[in-house]
Structures are given as structure tokens and as C-alpha cells.
Design a protein around this nucleic acid. Sequence first.
DNA 1: TACCCTA
Length: 195
Amino acid sequence: YFAGLDATAPTNSHELAIPNDFIGCIIGRQGSKINEIRQVSGAHIKIASATDGSAMRQVTITGSPASISVAQYLINALEMAKYTMQAASSATPVDLNLTFSQSAPTASTAATSMAVLAATTPAPTTINVHSPSTLSTIQNPHYAVPISSLLGMKALPVLAVHPATSSLMQGLSPYTAKMPTSSIKKSERQKFAPY
DNA sequence: TACCCTA
């Protein structure tokens, strides 16, 4: 008997709208990125066809809460990476300089996106990390795929923010141990030091 | 800049 397996691994679904400009980088070439997200998260991800009159693509994520959380995070991270790239390339420093005239624009932009990501990540209360099924899911071999290659950037400080993904990092510990910890620059560490 | 997957 696998009593309680279905009860502790409910199938939820979450829908979100992604702008057409961002959906490309989320899907990737021949769907490489979205397929990797599907494999890593273990969630069913449905991306609707382009809707006329709307600049959005409807994305439906289905699976266990943990799977949805991982998929959601990866999509958000890719979207944020795209957003920060656009923000960095756009040479229009606007009202932010009024409040932070002394700080560098790039630093404030990065810190803001971190805060945005932390705010947009789903509520931690929906995920019961201590349930046995969730733990076995996290220790699934699928999670051995290095996520950093997916994101194409060093997102380790952001990963630490998300509770679900921080427990995910336990499963990734053999990989994170091999990762150069010194890649976190001192300037970034100063950025997040509250004192 | 765009990447167009799976169902």
C-alpha cells in the first residue's frame, strides 16, 4: 500500500500570463529550455498558442505543489533575467535617481529585481516541505540536473531566498558544493548586508 | 532580437 501518497501529493494547477517577448526565451530553441524546466520540475507545463489582440501567452503549470513551485521559480528567474537585461540595456534612468541619487543605477536595479522575485514567489505556506512524499520528490534524480546551466547566470543568492528551493538545494548539495562559492562577489555581499 | 515547446 502507498497509503496517503495521493493525498500528500495533490495535483494543483497554476496559470500565469507571459508576455510574448519573454515566452521565446522561456521556451528556448526547439523548446530546449521549457523541456528542461519540465524535466527538472516534474510539472506539466502547457503554453497556449499566441492569442490575437493579446501580447500574452497563457501558461498553465500542473503538478504537485513542489513541482509547481520549482517550475514557477525557474520561469520567474528566466523572466527576471530577461527583464534585468532590458533594464540594463535601456539607457533611460528615470525617477529612481531621485530617491537613490548616490547609489549606482545597476545596483539598485538588481536589488529591486531580487525583491520583486522574492515578492512574486508563491506563498511558502502552500508547500509542506516536511511531508515524506515531498522529500522523496526533492531527492528525485531529476533534480540532479544543474539548474545554473538552465538559468545561464549565477542565481545562488536568489535561490537562498525561496524556502522551497532552499530545501531543493539540499538535494543539489553535491553540485552546489562543486560550484565556486567565490563567484559571489564581495560587492554583492555588501549590497545585501543590512548593517 | 528571438528562441515556439507539449498536448
